[in-house]
Structure formats: C-alpha cells, structure tokens
Computed example of a mutant assay.
Amino acid sequence: MNLAPFKHVLMLPGVRPLALLMFFARMPPAATGVILTLHVAVTLDKGYGAAGLVGAVGTIGMGLGAPLMGRLIDERGLRAMLAVSVTASAAFWLTAPLMGYWTLLITSFGVGLLGVPMMSIGRQVITALVPEHQRRVALSVDSISVELSFMGGPALGVFVATKFSTNAALMFIGVSTLVAGVLLYWANPPMIHEDEVVDGPKPRVFEWLRGRIVGVLIVCVGATVCLAGMEVSAIASLERIGKESWLGVVFFAMCAASIAGGLVYGGVKKAPSVLLLLVVMAALEIPVGLGDGSVLWLCLLLVPMNLTCAPLIAASGEHISRLAPPTARGLVIGLQGSAFTMGNAIGAPLAGVAIDHGGAPLGFAVVGVVGLLVAAVAWVLARQHDREQNPLPVG
C-alpha cells in the first residue's frame, strides 16, 4: 500500500485544515437520520413508520436541493449559498424540539431542500484545492473522511439522545451546523482550482450533461442502491438472531473495509473504472446472505464488497470533476449528491420488501442483482451517447 501520494496531497496548501474542518462539519449530517428517527418514534411516540415518513420527505428535499445549492455556488459563490443554507438549517434544528409531528414533517422537506450540502461541498472544495493529476488521491482522502464521519457522527448523536434527550440532540445538531457553517464562511475556500480556465461564456447544461457524465451519475445511483440495501439487510439479519447489540461492530467492519479500499485506491497507478467497481460491489453483495445467522461470517462477507465503497465514491467524483466544465462543478457535484440520495431511497425499501418475502439473504441478493442491472443500463446509455468515445472513463 503506497501512502506517499496521500502525504503529498495533505502537504498542499489549505488541504489539511479544510479536510479536518469538513470531517467535523459532516458529523452532524451523518447523525440526523438516527436522531430524527428516535425523536419521532420515541419522544413524540409516533412509531417508526411515522419516523420513516419524516426521513423520506427530508430525503426528497435533499435530492432536489443539492443541485440547487450547487448551482447557487456556481452563480453566486460559496458564501451566498452558506448564508441561505446555514440560516435554514440552524433555524430548523434549533426549533425542532418545539415542533409537533406534522410541522416537523412539512419543515423536514424545507431543510432538505435548503440545508447545507456538506457532502457535496467537501468534494468540491477538495477538487478545487488540488491539481487535476492529484484528484484521485485527494478524493480518496475525502471518501475516507466521510467514512470516519459516519463512524463517529451517529454514535455521538445517539449518546447525546440517550444520555440527555432527543431534544438536546436536535439542538446539538443545530449548534454544530451553525458553527461549521460560520467556519466555512470565514475560511471561504476556493471552489475552482486556480489553473482551470473559467473565461468566456458558460456552456449550457445540455452541452455537457450527457454521455459519460450521465453514465457516472447512474453508477452513483446503483452504488447507493447496493449500500442502502446492504445496511437494511444487515440489520434484519442481526435482528432475526437477537444480536442487534452487535450492529455497531458490523457497521464498524463495513466502514473499516471502505477506508482500507480508499487507501489502496489512492495509491494505485492505474485505477479501475467506476463501472467495474459497481459490478464488483454488486456481485460481491449477492452471496453476503450466506452469513445470515452468524455475526462473524456476516462481518467477513461484508468486507469484500465494502472495499469498493470509498474507491467508487472517489472515482465518480474524479470523473465528474474532469468531465464537467469548472463553471458548472457545483451543479454537477450536486447532481452526484442527488444520485446518491436517489439510490438510498430505492435501495432501502427494495431490500425491505425482499426481506419480508425471503429474509435477509434475499435482501442482499436482490439489491446486488439490481446493482448489476443498473451497471448494464449505465453502460448502454453511455455507449449510445458517446459512440466515438469510451463508454465510461477508465481512470
């Protein structure tokens, strides 16, 4: 494993402090799902179905809002976007403890639509801070940072919710988001690299949003279908054998494998294509159900597919940043965020239906097969639109 490229990237001006800031800034968004679920289901005593509806409405808002916020960055700059989104986010989370269920349901769409897209901002900032030939490594660093945020954020949120209350946890998210937003506003990092040319008229969206970019976005959908379905199926598998308390261990194994994959991916000289990474991820998910009934075997079988997680996220970001014009990078990274959100929205209920009919093994198998089908669709569409080019970038 060659770690020298990571050292070189982290030594570039501005990379280390911004990477650290984005790590902490992403922890509150990582905790929002579990905190809202606990608040609605337990504190408001509305049940998990009602909690899932709040999450679904917020997810729809996020899917629509990410490209809007990205376009605002392209047109007005990061600070203008933060002024809108940080205000909306802080207002929601700080007043959420006072809201009844129906108010919370309606406003969750608004905070999804106008909230701070920390995941997308991190990818765009890291892209702007490094030259193009080092973006694979930089985006691998960013993907690893995301995994670490998802390892720490939910755990911290659950600790606050159980030690104090879900109201305190909601307010904690609000304060954390406000602090992170103010720090980002003060830092005002560049959103386009200094070597990139941005003079002249801006290309229209449909001049570049086609072919290979569409293919990569579809791959992003397929990846999160597999990942969301994997999480739901893993939870169902542990619940069946009464081992829910081991969920943290299983999720730690997933994240650790993804981090290891990101380290390997950032150090290789020739990277695999995003399409190949999706095919490998989906194919390796199908047999994970063989570990149903055993915590140890479930962890071991989840490791191979999760080795591709951080590399796939990094690879998709690298190709998107190269294929889209710099003046539209906020929009295209926002569309990538929407693709990830769409995959989550499809994968979780799809796995749930499969689990209801055949248990956790069928959940793993179904979303794995769907991931392979999505990969096939991405290949066909990219081939149709770019007949004279490679069907998908090969890295």
Score class of each variant (00 low, 15 high):
G222E: 00
A223G: 11
A223I: 13
T224D: 09
V225F: 10
V225D: 03
V225M: 09
C226A: 14
L227S: 02
M230G: 08
M230P: 03
E231P: 05
E231F: 14
V232P: 07
S233C: 13
S233I: 12
A234T: 15
A236M: 07
A236T: 04
S237V: 07
L238M: 14
E239W: 06
E239D: 14
R240T: 14
S245Y: 12
L247C: 06
L247Y: 14
G248F: 06
G248N: 05
G248D: 04
V249A: 15
V249Q: 11
V250N: 03
F251D: 07
F252G: 11
A253G: 07
A253R: 00
A253W: 00
M254F: 13
M254P: 01
M254Y: 10
A256K: 07
A257E: 00
S258K: 03
I259E: 02
A260R: 00
A260W: 03
A260C: 13
G262K: 02
G262F: 06
G266P: 11
V268T: 13
V268M: 15
K270M: 12
K270V: 15
K270S: 14
K270H: 15
A271Q: 14
P272E: 05
S273L: 10
S273I: 07
V274Y: 09
L275H: 11
L277K: 01
L278P: 00
L278H: 01
V279N: 02
V280C: 11
M281R: 05
M281S: 12
M281P: 04
M281Q: 14
A282K: 01
A283L: 15
A283P: 08
A283I: 08
L284N: 01
I286P: 02
P287F: 07
V288E: 02
G289A: 11
L290W: 12
L290A: 11
L290T: 00
G291Y: 01
D292W: 02
D292S: 15
D292Y: 05
G293P: 10
S294L: 09
V295N: 06
L296D: 06
W297E: 09
L298F: 08
L298I: 09
L298H: 05
C299Q: 10
L300P: 04
L300R: 07
L302G: 01
V303A: 10
V303D: 03
V303L: 11
